[in-house]
Nucleic acid binder design. Sequence first.
DNA 1: GTCTATAGCAGGATAGAC
DNA 2: GTCTATCCTGCTATAGAC
Lengths: 192, 192
Amino acid sequence: MQKNSLMTTRDTIIQVADHLIRDKGFNAFSFKDISIAIGIKTASIHYHFPTKTDLGIATIKGHIERLEALKAELENKSPLTKLEGFFSIYSAVKSENKVCIVGSLATDLHTVEEGIQKELKVLAEKILEWVTEILEEGKAKNAFAFQVAPRTKALLIITNMLAIVQLSRLTKADDFTLLKETIIQELKPKTE
Amino acid sequence: MQKNSLMTTRDTIIQVADHLIRDKGFNAFSFKDISIAIGIKTASIHYHFPTKTDLGIATIKGHIERLEALKAELENKSPLTKLEGFFSIYSAVKSENKVCIVGSLATDLHTVEEGIQKELKVLAEKILEWVTEILEEGKAKNAFAFQVAPRTKALLIITNMLAIVQLSRLTKADDFTLLKETIIQELKPKTE
DNA sequence: GTCTATAGCAGGATAGAC
DNA sequence: GTCTATCCTGCTATAGAC
């Protein structure tokens, strides 16, 4: 990863940290990794982020911002387009064989400071709310058919995505695409 | 966790390591943690397991053994009983607010040595095979109804379990039970 | 804002006594 | 099989020059 000249050093650090967390986990990445990746000394990283916790929080906040932006961008689109937009996040994750930030930090939850835990809970709730809304709208418009409560269906779909990027590191990378397409297919109303 | 006098020191170390990995992650637990938990010095742990990798491999092998034992124990039971047996693994995980060993190590996969990666792949494949078999049998006996291929349905169900123990650390602990019961309900054939 | 230098600590691992 | 003592490495973080 090379520092893009259009980005601030601060944002570049966050971007590299994000990739490292999702590739190796929060406890396995070091300031040295970032230092090497962007050609800056570790002491300089501390100027932008006094502690590793600060960097972790900023990384999660970045995800929240991008999620809000995606949601706003798709506001007037169809429920199916919205859901595909949500899935596109995980397609990008899988294309690099990384994992979802929520899954990565949830497994490390009991080792990170409270600031990170709190911010992660905000992100998880926002994801769950958005997918629930998409499913509710889809059902109301007969774009989707499912029997359980929208929030329950959202949990089922989110857990499918969150875990398949992890599990397909061990089974087959293709299993990601298989699940993504199966989920969309099963949501379509049966024409009888 | 206290050393049970009926267990060998070796097995006690594995048991503690397993809990630590699923609570904090492989990179966050230390020999010192085990040392404190069972009242033995870290150097003594190295007598049983020369390296941390050796301990990690032994921990995964323990899971494989218990999975095979559970599978054998349920061999002559109904598909529903088998599936509930599989879910009981995750109920136990969730009751301690820990996560599945597969998810924990999959997120750390790129930081562990090849021996651990290989053993984890064996475990993941065995889980996938078993659940696929249960679903195939259940469909053949009209105990379960589902539209997709058994292996695909197994992936959907396993990812639900694997991720809900992670995600419900952030949303609600009850979400685990909600998903478990929803999955069983949805598998039941519709009586029309 | 980035650097050099270093403090201070914790980790995995080993040697050798008992 | 467990102990004490220690090595070496890598980590987060800080001080102070430029």
